[in-house]
């Protein structure tokens, strides 16, 4: 499984750094900053990260729906069964995806799992209220 983060400018790279501070180095996590000066086009960067003829699972996470980063990737992976795209990424989502074990799942199973992770990550976007909680014990 390869996880590829992509964003306008540095968000993807920053997210990768944050993830790796928390979890340690992740060899299957890649980050692409689009539209920075003096750098290859996003399309070219992504094309280089996809191993030709690979059946490996690719998960693309992008910054915002409607952004050109998301649109570009959506077009590139349109007809590929082993490639998935999620947009509106946040740190909880990236952490969930990286700890997932999806390598032996069917295409449908991966899609369902991703729906679950999105649902969980959505819940973690919230107003913080420090409320009393019942004490837990063994």
């Amino acid at each position: 499984m390869q996880v590829i983060l992509a964003s306008h400018s540095q968000m993807a790279k920053g997210l990768k750094q944050t993830v790796e501070l928390i979890m340690g180095k992740q060899s299957n996590l890649h980050a692409n900053a689009a539209y920075e000066d003096e750098q290859e086009s996003l399309k070219k960067q992504i094309a280089e990260q996809i191993t030709p003829n690979s059946h490996d699972l690719y998960l693309f996470l992008t910054d915002i729906i409607g952004g050109s980063v998301n649109t570009t990737i959506a077009q590139m992976i349109e007809d590929k069964e082993n490639m998935f795209l999620v947009t509106g990424m946040n740190l909880p989502l990236v952490l969930a995806v990286l700890t997932a074990k999806l390598d032996n799942c069917s295409s449908d199973q991966v899609a369902n799992k991703l729906e679950e992770y999105c649902e969980e990550a959505r819940k973690e976007l919230k107003v913080v209220r420090i409320t009393a909680q019942e004490a837990e014990d063994f």
């Binding site: 790796e20 501070l21 928390i22 979890m23 340690g24 180095k25 992740q26």
Partner: peptide, 12 residues
């Protein structure tokens, strides 16, 4: 006999 390791993140 206790193993004592020094590491920050699990994959370190």
């Amino acid at each position: 006999g206790v193993e004592v390791v020094v590491k920050q993140a699990p994959t370190d």
